[in-house]
Amino acid sequence: MSVFNESHPEDPVLRRVTPLVLRGGLIVAMSCIGLGLFLWVLQPGEFAIQWRAITTGAHPEAFSWRQELWSVTRLRPRGFVLLGLAVLTATPLSRVLLCAATFARARDRLFVLLTGAVIALLAVAILFGKIG
């Protein structure tokens, strides 16, 4: 019978740090989205127009990530919401990177290879999105 904790030096580190990464990412993401929603309540015009377009079957309008993320400096609601969505999506990816680094530190080559494969597939996801 194998013993998870004792034979795998990476395990205590991952158990301690992973929840911090997941909770931290979630809190930052929800704060950004919550702030964006609050700003939409204060400036409801933009939301109403876009909502009407989406609910009549229109595709979301194209946008530039760089411009939208910079728009948070002008307190633009959509910029905050998109920032929150980006942080949210990046949270599990950060967890995979953390696993990769921890396995590398423990010199577990097989699991470095497996986490590397997951990271490579996530990079392919971005490529697939660009191709459409």
């Binding site: 964006g36 876009q50 998109l82 969505l85 999506t89």
Partner: peptide
């Protein structure tokens, strides 16, 4: 989380994620 994030990345980059719906 990782499985959904892989799919979400495709949708986000493809422009299928609307801030007013997803937020």
């Amino acid at each position: 989380g990782v499985t959904a994030a892989a799919g979400a990345l495709v949708y986000l980059v493809r422009g299928d994620v609307s801030a007013i719906v997803a937020g």
